[in-house]
Write a protein that binds this DNA or RNA. Structure first.
Length: 158
DNA sequence: GCCAACGTTGGC
DNA sequence: GCCAACGTTGGC
């Protein structure tokens, strides 16, 4: 794939584990987005993400699910080291160092939104966001693409 | 904490 | 290759 501009993404994290504030406090405001154990999400990182792409930081499984901030993809995909760490929550006994199963990218904090754009609010705008996978019934993908038009539309809600 | 909607695993 | 069982996700 070539000749594309930057793309846009939405990446979910449970704020109890890792929040937009945690990212802001990291050295260089950058962190490895580890723990993705879904092939579709992995493939987005490996095949389509590029350094400089922008992403929504989405807080999931919490009191106020929604988009909390913006970040940039800061690295190409590389093997997620936690898959090899015996005893680690994300340890995968089937993964071998010479043939890693799981990958991650580094992400860099860009800014917090002035307020969280909640899932409830996004649903109210579903009519203007056709095909937005976050709103698809039963969706559980933790990394999903956002079209440029949807990205712009959502940011105007801030 | 519950549970519906998924994806993955593994027996056959 | 089918499909039931199981584990995970994530809203509520």
């Amino acid at each position: 794939m070539s000749g594309r501009g930057t793309s846009f993404w939405l990446m979910k994290s449970e704020p109890d584990s890792f929040s937009i504030d945690d990212l802001q406090r990291r050295p260089a405001q950058t962190e490895a987005w580890d723990g993705v154990r879904n092939y579709q999400a992995r493939n987005f990182m490996r095949q389509q993400m590029r350094v400089g792409d922008q992403a929504f930081f989405y807080h999931s499984n919490c009191e106020q699910p929604g988009i909390a901030g913006l970040m940039r993809i800061a690295s190409e995909a590389y093997p997620d080291p936690t898959q090899f760490e015996r005893g680690h929550h994300h340890y995968d006994p089937a993964a071998r160092p010479e043939e890693p199963r799981w990958f991650l990218v580094d992400v860099r904090f860009e800014r917090k939104l002035s307020r969280v754009i909640t899932l409830t609010e996004l649903r109210e705008h579903a009519g203007r966001l056709p095909g937005f996978r976050l709103l698809a019934p039963g969706n559980r993908l933790s990394i999903l693409p956002v079209s440029p038009a949807h990205w712009r539309y959502i940011l105007k809600l801030e």
